[in-house]
């Protein structure tokens, strides 16, 4: 097994890459992909802590949390893509900086 620090550093790099995607992309679907990368980093972190025994509730809790994160991410992707498709139908764009109806 790799040491815990190595896993945490890899997850931090993955989280920062996802944050970079969120901050630099224009397309809403690509921003969503980057958010998924960040969620993956977080759930991998939780599983790592659970397996290495750093939680008080016992080993299972982090794994159950990773499972819940995956399920909620699926719900979030479905809703966000519905919104993106709707926006594209109304405004003919999927770029977040061109959807500025609420901005003045």
């Amino acid at each position: 097994m790799p040491p815990l620090e190595h896993i945490l550093v890899v997850n931090a790099v993955l989280f920062a890459i996802g944050a970079m995607g969120v901050l630099t992309r224009r397309n809403a679907v690509l921003i969503l992909l980057s958010v998924e990368l960040m969620l993956n980093a977080v759930s991998l972190n939780m599983v790592a802590f659970a397996v290495y025994g750093h939680v008080d509730f016992g080993n299972i809790t982090g794994i159950v949390f990773a499972f819940f994160i995956i399920v909620i991410a699926a719900a979030e992707v479905a809703l966000a893509l519905g919104i993106v498709v709707r926006t594209f139908r109304n405004r003919a764009t999927a770029n977040v900086d061109e959807v500025n109806l609420l901005k003045w």
Binding site: A16, I17, A19, M20, V22, L23, T24, R25, R26, N27
Partner: peptide, 13 residues
Amino acid sequence: LFGRSRPLGIAAA
């Protein structure tokens, strides 16, 4: 595919 704030985003990340 990239917004205008790309250098700022990279720096923040």
